[in-house]
């Protein structure tokens, strides 16, 4: 019964929290935000999305920590490359093809966001049939190093969390 009334409790709660952050806290806003959040949750259930299964939530902060650190590091690296005009023209960019073992759609979405949000690497193409991914790298020195970085740093952790 409660499942039918609140099909996506986490989503509804996040929406309500967002509503209260954007407005100011009052009973009226709490009620209005709550109704909207419940309505959005019901609509979401009608769309029937694949429910993501989190197996080891405890590792999520570790992932966010790693990504946070990498974004700061690559921000500095890319700014430096732009200031020095790519180490005076010696910078090379290129495409790095790699095969993924990750299958879970939510985990793949998260991986694509991590790779694109980090300056210096961009997700160009992914084929789900062949599990084949092409990433464009801004400062390509060693292709295998990038493969090892994406597979070892992100993919293995995402697989542990989602699969």
């Amino acid at each position: 019964m409660i499942r039918r009334l609140i099909p996506h409790p986490l989503l509804s709660f996040a929406l309500l929290l967002f509503w209260l952050v954007l407005t100011s806290f009052s009973v009226g806003n709490l009620l209005l935000g709550g109704v909207i959040a419940l309505f959005a949750g019901t609509m979401m259930a009608k769309l029937q999305p694949a429910t993501p299964r989190l197996r080891r939530v405890i590792l999520l902060p570790k992932l966010f920590g790693i990504v946070f650190y990498d974004i700061i590091r690559s921000n500095l690296a890319v700014s430096w490359l732009i200031i020095t005009r790519g180490r005076r023209g010696t910078r090379h960019s290129g495409f790095v093809p790699l095969d993924l073992e990750l299958k879970d759609p939510t985990a793949l979405a998260l991986l694509s966001m991590i790779i694109t949000a980090t300056p210096g690497s961009a997700w160009i193409e992914y084929s789900a049939d062949e599990d084949h991914l092409v990433v464009h790298v801004f400062d390509l020195i060693d292709e295998d190093l990038w493969r090892a970085q994406i597979k070892g740093r992100y993919e293995s952790l995402l697989m542990e969390i989602f699969e």
Partner: peptide, 16 residues
């Protein structure tokens, strides 16, 4: 110089 290089540039503004 190339489009695929330029696609990295805006991420500086949108991250930090």
């Amino acid at each position: 110089k190339s489009f695929y290089d330029r696609i990295h540039a805006p991420t500086l503004g949108t991250s930090w």
